[in-house]
């Protein structure tokens, strides 16, 4: 066990956990930040996606000891009340079915648009390919990313 200080959504959090504990479980079990979901635990589904210094990462495969002072942003820290353009686009396109994958999808989409504000459909598919939606909402995810790309500043 060791103590870790993490910068999450602009706040400092502390946890006393084993060094190999994945960020996902620290977020969920220690900090009660439940927006990042568990889907596979091996970096294959993207349900656990968060941002590390602005880059989309799979938090299930990122040990807490590897984070250091890097800034973590989770879905809870994306906006105060769901008003990020990507979140609004998700609502407008009525993307979710069961909804379980969607926080991860949104985090991946935000990271993509921050880097490439006007992605093509192919670029969207490439960026989003690591996020599984078992309900098959892929078309609307793509439409929502395209819509958000027209609204991002």
């Amino acid at each position: 066990m060791a103590k870790y200080k993490l910068d999450i959504n602009g706040k400092t959090y502390e946890a006393d956990v084993a060094s190999d504990t994945p960020l996902l479980w620290v977020l969920r079990d220690n900090f009660g930040l439940l927006g990042a979901k568990y889907g596979c635990g091996i970096g294959q589904c993207g349900a656990c996606t968060v941002h590390l210094n602005g880059v989309a990462v799979k938090s299930c495969s990122l040990p807490v000891s590897a984070i250091g002072s890097k800034k973590v942003v989770t879905i809870e820290g994306l906006s105060a009340d769901g008003e990020h353009p990507v979140q609004l686009a998700w609502d407008e396109k009525d993307v979710a079915q069961c909804g379980y994958c969607q926080a991860g999808q949104i985090m991946t989409a935000v990271a993509l648009l921050n880097k490439n504000p006007k992605p093509s459909e192919d670029q969207i598919a490439t960026a989003m390919n690591g996020n599984i939606c078992r309900c098959g909402t892929y078309h609307r995810i793509r439409e929502a990313v395209l819509l958000a790309s027209t609204k991002m500043k």
Binding site: L34, G35, A36, K37, T74, I75, E76, L78, S79, D81, G82, Q87, W90, D91, D94, A96, G99, Y100, Q102, A103, I106
Partner: peptide, 12 residues
């Protein structure tokens, strides 16, 4: 439930 889903609320 859109709003709760897109803001990552603990629904599940």
């Amino acid at each position: 439930d859109n709003k709760d889903i897109i803001t990552g609320k603990p629904l599940f």
